[in-house]
Computed example of a mutant assay.
Amino acid sequence: MDIVEKLLNGSRLALSRTITAIENEYDEASSIMRKLYPHTGHAFVLGITGPPGAGKSTMTNQLAKAYRNIGKTVGIIAVDPTSPFSGGAILGDRIRMNSLTLDEGVFIRSMGTRGSLGGLSHKTADAVKALDAFGKDIIFVETVGVGQSEVDIVKAADTTMVVLIPGMGDDIQAIKAGILEIGDVFAINKADHDGADKLQMELNMMLDLDAEQKDWRPPIQKVVANQGEGINELVELIDKHYSYIKENGIMIKRRHERAKTELLELLRSSIGGYITKNIVKTGRLDNYLNDIELRKNDPYTVVHELMDELLKK
């Protein structure tokens, strides 16, 4: 029985090894994904994003417990900054979700961003597919929380939840950073702190400006995640949005755009891999650069020739 059969038969070890192969770009990763792909497309993907320190991991932990209480199986991809030494994730969200690790219905994996500036690892989409094929009902993708480039989460999720907290000095910081536009649901964490009502009012004002252009008006839920307060109400809002996008054909459109983005990303990655293997590592790039510097050639001609070579292969 190969690794794909084992994964489809419920082996957590096979799932873990598959994600490792995906993350490290092992030779067999592409073959594994080809076999898994027909078994994907069933899970609901929830993106969880927001500024650093907003309590996203605590929120994810509580939401996972809430979904387990209603019988849903859960997968969690926690995208962390990459260690400059090992290439692995350095924050280790699994440590902060210890209470879930003994639950067979939950699978947690931390992934490093690997240089991606959008808050997501380039391999996150494939890891989500592996969890989907494994049979998880809902998959959380918790992003690193880096501000403006956080918009990548839209490409990976069916529903995007933005987590904010009061008292960060500038309550509209996250809105200025551009994540107001991507939120389907907003959660104000640490709502027992001063400034929560002010933040909610400011969010409502900003959302009202755009309300006439949208059928879905993103709701705002105040939460105290470390106490579990407001979590069940938040789950109801998330499920309400999920029903909305299914009933209005929005989920089909989002998944179409996701497939388009992933296909283009795979094409870019494959072309980049070919160039690295056949142009950079062979020394041909240095030869091209010397000719360009001496004006014996130009970068436009070089690119044209390399594309011709690539397409002929």
Rank of each mutant, 00 (worst) to 15 (best):
D2N: 15
K6F: 01
N9R: 12
S11V: 05
L13W: 03
A14Y: 04
I19W: 03
A21L: 01
I22R: 01
S31H: 10
R34H: 07
G41P: 05
L46Q: 09
N61T: 13
N69E: 14
V74L: 11
I77D: 04
I77Y: 06
D80A: 04
T82F: 02
S86M: 02
S86F: 05
A89F: 08
I90E: 15
G92R: 09
S99E: 12
D103C: 09
G105S: 11
V106Y: 07
T113N: 11
S116I: 00
A127Q: 09
A130M: 09
V146K: 08
E150N: 03
E150M: 04
A157F: 02
M168Q: 10
A174H: 08
I175T: 12
I179E: 08
A187D: 04
D197C: 00
D197T: 10
K198D: 14
M201S: 09
D208C: 01
W216T: 01
R217Q: 10
P218D: 12
I220S: 05
V224N: 11
L237I: 02
Y244A: 03
I245P: 02
K253H: 13
R254L: 14
A259W: 03
R268L: 04
G273N: 15
T276Y: 14
V280F: 15
N287G: 15
Y288L: 06
R295Y: 13
K296L: 14
D308E: 15
L311T: 08
K312V: 07
K313Y: 11
